Simulated scan of single mutants.
Amino acid sequence: MDYSTEELMEAKRQIDSTLHKLRETIKTLESKENASRYKSQITLAQRRVKAFEIANYFIEKEIAGK
C-alpha cells in the first residue's frame, strides 16, 4: 500500500504519543508499592512499546525513502 508522507507523519506522531503514555504507565506500575502484583501489565506494556518502536522504525524508513 502507498501512503502519503502526511499520513506517515501523522501515524508516527500518534505512535510517539502512545509510546510516551506507555512508558509513563510502565514507570507508574513499577513504582507501585507491590510492583510484582502488576507484573503481567508491565510485561504487556513493555511488549507494546517494543512493537510500536518497530512500527516507528519502518515508518521512519518509509518517510526517508520518499
Rank of each mutant, 00 (worst) to 15 (best):
R37G: 03
Q46R: 15
R47L: 10
A64D: 08
E7S: 15
A55T: 06
R47C: 06
K27Y: 07
N56K: 14
S36D: 15
E7F: 11
K32T: 15
R37Q: 13
I15Q: 04
T5C: 03
R47E: 04
L19V: 12
A45W: 10
D2F: 09
E10M: 13
V49M: 05
E53M: 07
I59L: 15
I59T: 11
E30H: 06
A51E: 12
E33D: 13
T18Y: 06
L8K: 00
A64K: 07
K50L: 14
S40E: 11
K50F: 12
S40C: 03
A51N: 08
I42H: 04
F52L: 15
A45L: 09
K39D: 01
Y38W: 00
D16T: 06
S17C: 01
Y38F: 01
F52W: 07
E7I: 10
A55F: 03
L44H: 12
T43W: 08
E60L: 15
E7C: 07
F52I: 02
I15G: 01
E10K: 14
M1D: 01
K21M: 12
R48H: 09
E6M: 04
N34W: 13
L29F: 09
E30L: 13
E60Q: 15
I54Q: 07
A64L: 05
S36E: 14
Y3A: 03
Y3L: 06
Y3C: 00
E60V: 10
I26T: 02
T5R: 11
K32W: 09
K66F: 04
K21E: 14
Y57R: 14
S31D: 05
G65V: 03
H20E: 09
E33C: 08
N56E: 12
R47W: 08
I63C: 11
S4A: 08
N56V: 09
I42E: 01
E53Y: 02
N34D: 14
I42N: 02
T18I: 11
G65Q: 13
S36Y: 15
K66E: 02
I42Y: 06
K61F: 10
E24T: 11
A51C: 04
Y57P: 00
I59K: 12
S4H: 07
Y3W: 05
E30R: 15
L19S: 06
I54A: 05
R48V: 05
L8F: 00
K61T: 10
D2E: 13
I54P: 02
R48E: 11
E10D: 14
I54T: 08
A11Q: 13
R47Q: 12
S40W: 06
K39I: 08
N56H: 10
A64M: 03
R37T: 14
Y57D: 01
E53Q: 13
I63A: 11
E6W: 01
K21D: 13
A51I: 04
D16E: 10
T5I: 10
K66W: 04
N34G: 07
I63L: 13
E24P: 04
R13T: 10
A35C: 09
L22S: 05
Q41F: 05
M9Y: 03
I42P: 03
K32N: 09
T18D: 09
S17P: 00
K39Y: 03
H20T: 11
D16Q: 12
N56Y: 05
F52S: 02
K50S: 11
S17T: 09
M1Y: 01
A51M: 08
